[in-house]
Write a protein that binds this DNA or RNA. Structure first.
Length: 504
DNA sequence: ATGTAC
């Protein structure tokens, strides 16, 4: 254990405080950072992760920081943290993959329908024809994808999942109700609409071609830790939680499809454009970066720079939303190619890289979730008039294919963590370390031992289950801290990743 | 995470 971890003050089961002193040595009332994690998880926090959390807590306008069990070093702020401010927005703690999210499609196929490896290979192939994976890949890499031209792409990123967009893309209109946010607009008081902002961008030199080329990635998974995964749903035994799971539309012992992806090249362009603009704005005004780190640049939310950031983030978020919904529609179409009468419904779509306006500590504040998932319990005012008002919304947490993924629901205790939980297991080894330390045969055999196949000839070693933290300990921390309860476990049957494709 | 960048 390093010295920084020893500074943690344990205040409850799997919950601790990291005291923060003002940089000038003063003892002003800076509320401590909330740290979620049991003994095993606390061991995983390295000094730099805690240092980033402290830098974030001391940054201007920040009222609160939460560190989740999956935390590791990130861009300015740690991945796996929540940063709250009544006044300021921070692009770094949203990240380069704006609105990176999870979605879950529940089918009515019983688990044994996909027992046969030949059936699973057929499904992998049918999905691959419609939904490409891998860096740079888009619609032209998938013969049965939906083609999106410039005009429809413009509508997608300026409107999000509106009725008109869903209809044009053949996405069931009811799926918009299963979204944490179906669309994003310019912030209140913004001088620009999203359409005006995007038109302005398109008039910059050579920018229109670049923007339009990114629309052609709608309906694609991307690379890195992004994936699509066929699952068997296992509801928990507890009758009350089981009932909540059933009300979410989950079907015990049936096949579901879990998707992890974000806003692809489009969101990346929006994020990088903003980092550049905000950094040069700082330098022009002679402002100092928080803790000297340009990755923690910021703007007041109602300033011109802040509004421009929120507009560009909204467009990236709209791309991610429609990208997920389109992938789910195409995956369902692929299942129908193999099982013509199969039915499927979107359970939920929820982000873990976004800033949202929410009530925290009695105030409307900007809640930055960087690798953190919103966790509103039953009765939360922002769930009123949704299907989840009386239960809380589904929380979709990817673990790893070997140990499964988890669906949780928030408890009232989630207020302790700014109504947030983790977003997955969290990386334990860097990509380079994982590639060096993990043996390819062991990784591939480990998945086969659990009856899991993939579209890859060899599974990417830097994405192997052992490259990530112990998912059981991460989930135990969330439960012990009283933030959320598990409703169902998802057991992987096949995985679609960016990797060398398997031969037929 | 992205994709080869005023």
């Amino acid at each position: 254990m390093d010295t920084t971890t020893q500074m943690l003050r344990i205040t409850g089961p799997a919950i601790a405080e990291l005291p923060v002193a003002a940089a000038d040595g003063g003892q002003d009332s800076i509320s401590p950072i909330t740290v979620i994690g049991n003994d095993a998880v606390r061991e995983t926090f390295c000094g730099q992760t805690l240092r980033q959390a402290i830098n974030s807590r001391l940054a201007p306008g920040v009222s609160r920081v939460v560190l989740n069990p999956d935390a590791h070093v990130g861009y300015g702020a740690p991945v796996g943290c929540v940063m709250v401010s009544p006044s300021h927005v921070y692009p770094g703690p949203v990240g380069v993959d704006i609105k990176c999210s999870m979605s879950l499609l529940q089918t009515d196929l019983p688990a044994d329908a996909i027992n046969e490896l030949t059936v699973r290979r057929k499904l992998i192939k049918a999905i691959g024809k419609r939904v490409p994976s891998g860096a740079g890949r888009g619609q032209r890499n998938a013969p049965k994808s939906r083609r999106v031209d410039g005009a429809l792409g413009f509508q997608v990123v300026t409107e999000g999942a509106t009725k008109s967009v869903l209809k044009k893309l053949g996405i069931p209109k009811g799926w918009a109700d299963a979204c944490e946010d179906a669309f994003h607009t310019a912030p209140d008081g913004s001088s620009d609409t999203l359409a005006a902002r995007l038109q302005w961008m398109g008039r910059q030199r050579d920018k229109l071609d670049r923007i339009e080329s990114k629309y052609r990635q709608l309906g694609s998974l991307g690379g890195g830790n992004h994936f699509g995964e066929a699952e068997v749903v296992q509801l928990v035994q507890d009758p009350a939680l089981r009932k909540i799971g059933e009300s979410f539309g989950l079907r015990d012992g049936h096949v579901a499809f879990l998707t992890h992806c974000g806003s692809r090249g489009f969101g990346h362009d929006m994020a990088m454009g903003q980092f550049r603009a905000m950094k040069s704005d700082f330098e022009k005004r002679g402002l100092a970066f928080p803790a000297g780190d340009p990755q923690l640049c910021y703007a007041e939310a109602d300033s011109d720079a802040g509004q421009k950031y929120l507009c560009d983030m909204a467009m990236g978020a709209n791309f991610a939303t429609v990208n997920h919904l389109l992938i789910n529609a195409l995956v369902l179409e692929a299942f129908r190619e193999v099982f013509p009468s199969v039915r499927g419904e979107l359970v939920y779509f929820i982000s873990h890289n976004i800033v949202r306006r929410e009530t925290i500590d009695g105030m409307r504040q900007w809640v930055h979730r960087k690798g953190a998932t919103r966790a509103f319990p039953a009765g939360h005012p922002d769930l009123a008039r949704t299907a989840f008002a009386d239960t809380g919304h589904p929380i979709l947490l990817p673990g790893n294919p070997r140990d499964g993924s988890s669906i949780m629901v928030a408890n009232p205790g989630a207020s302790a963590s700014a109504f947030s939980v983790n977003h997955g297991a969290g990386r334990r080894m860097s990509r380079t370390k994982a590639k060096k330390n993990l043996r390819q045969e062991a990784v591939d055999q480990g998945l086969l031992d659990h009856d899991i196949i993939s579209n890859c000839r060899v599974y990417p070693r830097d994405e192997a289950p052992d490259a990530y933290k112990d998912f059981g300990e991460v989930l135990a921390s969330v439960t012990q801290a009283g933030l959320a309860s598990e409703v169902a476990r998802l057991k992987a049957k096949f995985v679609i990743k960016d990797g060398a494709p398997a031969d037929d």
